[in-house]
Nucleic acid binder design. Structure first.
Length: 401
DNA sequence: TTAGGGTTAGGC
DNA sequence: GCCTAACCCTAA
């Protein structure tokens, strides 16, 4: 019976795209056991909930605790960390920082505090422990966010390209695309489609937003999400607070259960330890800052965040910002057929082969034959700026073919 | 992923 | 205009 329950749970996790529905409910109802597979399934359900929270903008820093605990649990089971787990951590950390960028400025201090609290202290500890949660993307975000502190132009650019879309200034046809939904969902699935995540950004993403190696939070379908959330927002807006409150409570209870796997002394009904429950109050003062006419827009006033304290009646900020794209990384080789070039049919600048490249190619052919991919992978430094096709073409020239 | 034909750009 | 090297496209 438990096997069937697992199937049902897996099906639910794979198919449900409603950010307002918590998969934890079903997992709990099915009364799954504590086997390794079941725990992974439960972890997946938590990741799905975090994904939903990101989509809805209801993420808070307590999620970072949760994700860190999940990593410990997986380590205990000698299981590998899922990419979606790492991505969730990166996005959550970034989201919890970005929310302080709008409408405030760096000089207001809250952004600085968030940098110190999340990136310097929390992630600093992870770095020291060699955590797998510290990914390339996370480090790039850290670099950019800290750089933005002393660079008003970068601060402004990040702020403008990562805030949530406007709900009042845009016309009806574009409103839905201004929502977090499509972007988050695109991010989640897009990189599976185009490999390197290149060339799929909208105009706001600007130059260089090219790198995303992870596969995002699993199972999110952009079209479904977009449709679902829009419809849900329209149909159920009056009950948002109550529903979110329940989801927050479910998630917290679930956290206790998961933590129990790590620390048997922690059991259902007990309060999570302080490491879990010390999520900060990220609700900024209720006063509004005048808009500056930078193209940034006013945002949805409806509060949909009960994970943050005091959000019942006052506006919160988590619904305004969310991580959008990984930080800029310039590829050394343009992807030829994946839309990575600004315009189609723009040729790469001609780059003549250096003698050491030719020599490495000769050696590579001796070792691997005409397996251009292996040759390139066998000498990634020398061939950093060459594609497999380049290698093939050069060899053709060399042998006079 | 690879092979092979086509295109482009620069030198002569 | 021809040759060459590098880049691009497409079929298998």
């Amino acid at each position: 019976m438990e096997v069937i329950d697992q199937w049902v749970a897996e099906f639910f996790l794979l198919r449900q795209h409603n950010p307002r529905a918590s998969p934890i409910n079903l997992i709990s109802a099915l009364k799954l056991g504590d086997s390794s597979d079941c725990i992974k399934l439960k972890i997946s359900s938590v990741l799905r909930d975090i994904s939903n929270s990101l989509i809805r903008g209801t993420i808070d820093e307590g999620m970072l605790d949760l994700l860190e605990i999940l990593e410990k649990l997986l380590l205990q089971q000698h299981s590998l960390l899922m990419d979606s787990h790492k991505s969730a951590y990166c996005w959550t950390a970034t989201e919890c920082t970005l929310r302080f960028m709008w409408p405030m400025f760096a000089s207001d201090g809250l952004f600085t505090d968030a940098l110190e609290r999340i990136w310097t202290k929390r992630i600093g500890i992870l770095k020291e422990s060699g955590s797998d949660l510290v990914t390339c993307d996370l480090l790039k975000w850290e670099s950019d966010l800290k750089k933005a502190l002393g660079d008003p132009e970068l601060y402004q650019r990040i702020r403008e390209t990562n805030i949530r879309g406007d709900q009042s200034d845009v016309d009806e046809s574009t409103r839905r695309f201004g929502s977090d939904t499509i972007d988050i969902a695109n991010e989640a699935r897009g990189e599976r489609e185009d490999g390197n995540g290149i060339g799929r950004d909208n105009a706001n993403d600007g130059e260089g937003m090219e790198c995303l190696e992870n596969d995002g939070i699993d199972n999110v379908n952009a079209a479904d999400e977009e449709h679902t959330v829009s419809a849900q927002d329209q149909e159920h807006e009056p009950s948002l607070d109550k529903g979110d409150e329940m989801a927050a409570r479910e998630l917290k209870e679930y956290l206790v259960e998961i933590q129990g796997h790590i620390d048997p002394s922690t059991r259902q009904g007990e309060e999570p330890n302080s490491a879990i429950d010390h999520s900060v109050d990220v609700t900024p003062p209720p006063t509004r800052v005048n808009r500056t006419g930078t193209g940034c827009q006013d945002h949805n006033e409806a509060s949909d965040n009960v994970n943050e304290k005091g959000s019942d009646s006052q506006e919160t900020w988590s619904s305004r910002v969310r991580p959008r794209r990984p930080t800029p990384v310039t590829l050394s080789v343009s992807p030829l057929k994946k839309g990575g070039l600004a315009k189609p049919h723009v040729r790469r600048p001609k780059k003549f082969w250096k003698p050491e490249e030719v020599e490495a190619l000769r050696e590579g052919v001796k070792e691997y034959g005409k397996s251009w991919k292996d040759i390139k992978n066998g000498n990634p430094t020398v061939f950093a700026e060459r594609t497999e096709v380049d290698l093939k073409d050069k060899w053709r020239n060399l042998v006079g073919g």
